[in-house]
Structures are given as structure tokens and as C-alpha cells.
Design a protein around this nucleic acid. Structure first.
Lengths: 128, 128
DNA sequence: GTATCTGTTATATTATATGTATAACAGATA
DNA sequence: TATCTGTTATACATATAATATAACAGATAC
């Protein structure tokens, strides 16, 4: 599991951490039950503050991706990530709406958009 | 063109304005050359500050959605929005990646995801 | 010519978000 | 006892978001 940060990015560091861990789970590079580095170890590795890592971990826990045992440490959720429910689909739709609206303005056809999504899906499947 | 704000939203007001104007253009409720309210008029209508509207307008101008004439006012770009180029597709892919990664974690099939995108595309086409 | 409408620019203030820096606490373990 | 967990608290610096006023300069209507 490689974690790389772009300190120039507009995306906050804790967001980058979250996204890369989620991507790791999606690619099955991180498997259920697998241990993640402690907040201090990861912060030290990346040269960032403990609290920044902690914020990412807390949100990942809140969203059901990981479990945190007070003394055992942090692990990828052993029973797998909670499957999409109605609330998630609503959030997903709300997220995609403005993205698709802009694509339509820029003359991106539905077929082209779908193709891009399929290609991205493929990048996660192929590296399983 | 109805503009509604959710002051409780995490999305900044100027972002909501941008998204709704872009959605309006996508739905062809706003047509090329059509005038938009002045910064002061819109701010007054919505009960927000002039600078918040101006920030949205400036970014929409920067991204090619509108034109601003110093004394004539604000209009939807008369020649249509700039079509997607390589830079836009890269940005789009970068935007979709984490969204799709999370969907995969939550067991959303490619077919389900594509279906959702198609449905959203449809909401813009049907109201043309 | 004055008043009014544009967008624009400048300052200042408040609140919130982000990230860092230290320090300490409590449970588990070697 | 020392060291490792996550957790909590406080403080600080910076950036973003939004508001509040004020002023400027060009265009237009009376």
C-alpha cells in the first residue's frame, strides 16, 4: 500500500489519505482485517502531523471503511465495507449531477461519459 | 431560471450558484447570449452579498460559461461553452476516480453505476 | 449635467476549515 | 517500568467563505 501526498493539491491532506485508502480497498490491495499503520507511524512516514492522519482515520471509521480498536490499532473493516444503501445512492446522485451537467455543457456525449466510467471501473478490476 | 440556496449545505454559496447556472445551461433553460442578473440584483434577490455572486460569476467566466461586459452586464456565452478538451477530460477522470472507488467498495456494480449516470443524463435531455 | 445602472477594486471583519505543535491520559503489552 | 496504542485538549497559523462598506469608472437615461 503506497501512499503519496501532493502538498500542492487543493484537496486537503486528510482527503487525499481517505481517497487513497478507499482506492486501496477497491483494488483489493487492502483486504478485510488487514492492519493499517498507527496514526503516529503513518504521520511520521509521511512527514505530517498525527492529527491529520487521525482525522482521515476517524472519517473512514465513521463511513464504515475501517475499525479502530483502542489498543489493537486500525484495521480494514473485517466484514467488508457497508454496502450501498438508499442514503448512499442519494449522495452519489447528488455528487454526479453537477459533474454530468458540466460535461453536457462541454458537449461530452452520454456514450463518451459512460465509456470513461467503464474505463475507470476497469482500472480497479484489473488490479485485483 | 430559478436559483435556490441551501444555507445549511456544506457546499459554499458561490459553488451552489455556479452549479445551478451550469445546470441551467445544460438543460437549455439558459441559452447562449441570454442575460443573467447583475451581481447586485442577484445578490439582493437571494439575500446574499454582492461579492459572493461576483465570485461565482468570475469563476464561470474563467471557465468559459459566461461573458462579462463591463457595462453591458453578464450573458451566457454567446458562442456556447468551450467544448471538452484533453485538460477537461483529465480533470473529469480525476474527479470520477475516487467516486467510483467508493462505489466499488460499496458493492455498486458497473451496470448499476452506468444506469445511474444514464438516468442523470436523461434528466437534462428531457427538459430541453 | 445629474442620477443611476454596470462591473470592479479595496479594506475590514467574522467564522470556519486545515494543518501543525505539544502535552497529557488510559489501556495493553513486552 | 517502558513503550506502544488511540484519544483528548489546547493553542497557533493560515486559508477560505461570507459579509459589510465604500469608492471608482464607464455607459445610459432623464
Amino acid at each position: 500500500m503506497f501512499l503519496t501526498l501532493d502538498l500542492e493539491s487543493e484537496d486537503p491532506i486528510y482527503t487525499q489519505l481517505k481517497q487513497q485508502i478507499i482506492a486501496g480497498i477497491a483494488k483489493k490491495e487492502l483486504t478485510p482485517g488487514e492492519a493499517l499503520p498507527s496514526v503516529r507511524a503513518l504521520a511520521s512516514d509521511l512527514g505530517i502531523n498525527l492529527h491529520t492522519v487521525n482525522k482521515a482515520y476517524q472519517q473512514l471509521k465513521q463511513e464504515g471503511f475501517i475499525l479502530i480498536h483502542r489498543q489493537k490499532g486500525v484495521v480494514v473493516h473485517p466484514e467488508g465495507v457497508a454496502k450501498a444503501d438508499e442514503a448512499y445512492f442519494q449522495l452519489l446522485e447528488k455528487t454526479l449531477h453537477p459533474i454530468i451537467a458540466e460535461s453536457i455543457c462541454r458537449d461530452v456525449s452520454e456514450e463518451t461519459f459512460i465509456k470513461l466510467c467503464k474505463d475507470i471501473y476497469q482500472t480497479y478490476k484489473s488490479e485485483a
